[in-house]
């Protein structure tokens, strides 16, 4: 089940997945000289916690790039770290590792792993692409690309973060509050869906569904 906040919830397994939190991206930018406002981790968690309360998952999977860089966990403000600890106390917290955070977050609870396999599903940061799926895997759930899509409407183009998926593959939108997006027509994403797919754009209280082919056709 896809939630218009950009979260995946699997009721049977009690599993909630969220991608690309990019916590402490603000301070990472500050380190490099871009003094952007520092409250991004707080805001990201502000948005995540109500969804956790709503779905009451048994397992929370962060699909990689949960921290913007390796130093992120150390820079996380104490209040935010406490909130993560409280989450971990209530459920199984799994850090799937991503390219931004290739090592487990130090000082924070939760299990870290490259991939999580559960039933027919694999949870990983970046799609395997054309590599054949591992045996027994029916579909993969991943993040990494921060998909967004643009729809030409009567009133101009509307751009929104989106899920994009087929029966074998689902990419979640980035959940972090400082994360940008990559258009689903960009080759990096489009190449993962050679036979088309469907994008679900996040709305205020529902998703909007468009076939990839439609997006491509009406982009012009």
């Amino acid at each position: 089940m896809l939630d218009p906040s950009g979260i995946l919830f699997w009721p049977e397994a009690g599993l909630m997945a969220v991608a690309d939190l990019h916590l402490e991206k603000g301070s990472a930018a500050a380190k490099r000289g871009g003094l952007v406002p520092p409250w991004d981790s707080r805001l990201t968690l502000d948005r995540l916690l109500p969804r956790i309360r709503a779905f009451q998952p048994k397992t929370l999977v962060a699909l990689g790039d949960s921290f913007h860089d390796r130093g992120g966990p150390a820079r996380l403000p104490a209040a935010e770290a406490d909130r993560l600890r409280r989450i971990a106390a209530q459920m199984r917290l799994i850090w799937v590792l991503g390219n931004h955070d290739p090592v487990p977050p130090e000082g924070l609870p939760g299990e870290a792993m490259q991939e999580l396999h559960m039933g027919p599903l694999s949870f990983r940061h970046e799609s395997r692409g054309r590599t054949p799926p591992r045996s027994g895997e029916a579909a993969e759930i991943c993040g990494h690309h921060h998909p967004k899509a643009r729809i030409a409407t009567r009133g101009g183009t509307v751009s929104r973060p989106c899920f994009i998926g087929t029966e074998q593959r689902l990419i979640l939108p980035a959940f972090g509050c400082y994360t940008g997006g990559l258009d689903v027509l960009h080759p990096a994403i489009a190449a993962l869906f050679p036979r088309g797919g469907r994008a679900f754009l996040l709305g205020a209280d529902r998703l909007f569904s468009f076939a990839l082919a439609e997006i491509r056709r009406q982009a012009a």
């Binding site: 896809l2 218009p4 009721p11 579909a139 998926g165 029966e167 998703l207």
Partner: peptide, 18 residues
Amino acid sequence: ARERRRRTIPGGGRGLPA
């Protein structure tokens, strides 16, 4: 009115756990 409801994955989401 819409605030009170929300749609689940449309048909294209078949194959996903539900």
